[in-house]
């Protein structure tokens, strides 16, 4: 079945977008990315460390995975715009996962700074994928501002709490004309499947895989879960009923 994910005019056969944070080594990360089947993976921008051995970019290049720089660590629109511009220069991509956080304890996205940065980056020619709370109104405003996708959280980054407000995710999906990518909060495979069953177009996760006991096996589980959830969404689930509905004839 031809069921590509299309973001900003680009096609992806995989609906699992991976992050790279939290992996104990580049070797472990490499194995996990391979097992995940991902075609799009995030990296962060940081000061160059001359003592660092190997690069996450080499891993992605070898695997033929498209790089999606993020603006992780930015607290203001100003910082995020500069980081996006540096990423564009370093990585030769105008795609950016826009992430502007409000505080270090919750790492929740700051809606005001995120919207401000999104407008500036869209005007500057970027393909902008903003990380946001599960807020249908903000998602709509960001789409109107020209973002190529919206990325609502399921729960705080790294929390593994799953999807805390499935109803809001459904509201975002119902109204969206751009891909909805469930980002953050995924703890295990059933969370990723649920995101897809709710109608999300893709899932972005990192910690659930990179900090699992066996990252490559969890990556494989996430790949299957995303595919299963997508198929279930397309298949159309049965309505929930209060009482039983016999699946065998009742008369002998």
């Amino acid at each position: 079945m031809d069921d590509d994910l299309i973001i900003g005019g680009e096609k992806f056969a995989s609906r699992l977008i991976m992050g790279t944070g939290g992996a104990p080594s580049l070797e472990v990360l490499d194995a996990a990315l391979a097992a995940s089947g991902t075609e799009l993976t995030t990296v962060a921008m940081r000061r160059l460390d001359p003592s660092a051995r190997g690069s996450v970019l080499d891993v992605l290049r070898r695997r033929g995975i498209r790089v999606l720089p993020n603006t992780a660590g930015c607290f203001t629109a100003q910082e995020a715009v500069l980081t996006a511009r540096l990423a564009r220069e370093a990585l030769e991509t105008d795609w950016v996962k826009l992430e502007v956080i409000s505080d270090e304890r919750t790492l929740l996205p700051d809606p005001i700074e995120t919207f401000d940065a999104a407008e500036r980056l869209v005007a500057d020619g970027f393909t902008v994928l903003p990380y946001i709370g599960d807020d249908p109104a903000l998602a709509r405003r960001l789409e109107q501002a020209g973002c190529a996708a919206v990325m609502p959280l399921g729960a705080p980054i790294g929390s593994g709490l799953g999807i805390r407000n499935p109803h809001n995710i459904e509201l975002i999906v119902e109204a969206a004309g751009v891909p909805v990518i469930l980002d953050a909060g995924i703890g295990t495979a059933s969370d990723a499947a649920l995101a897809m069953e709710l109608g999300c177009d893709a899932v972005l996760l990192a910690t659930a895989v990179t900090r699992a006991q066996r990252p490559d096996l969890m990556a494989q589980a996430m790949r299957s879960a995303v595919a299963a959830g997508r198929a279930a969404r397309l298949a159309g689930r049965i309505p929930r009923r209060r009482y039983a509905e016999a699946s065998s004839p009742m008369t002998p």
């Binding site: 790279t20 921008m45 940081r46 993020n70 992780a72 540096l86 990423a87 990585l91 990192a206």
Partner: peptide, 10 residues
């Protein structure tokens, strides 16, 4: 002067 590169993250 800030010199940046891509690292694991996100």
């Amino acid at each position: 002067v800030e010199v940046l590169t891509a690292v694991q993250g996100g």
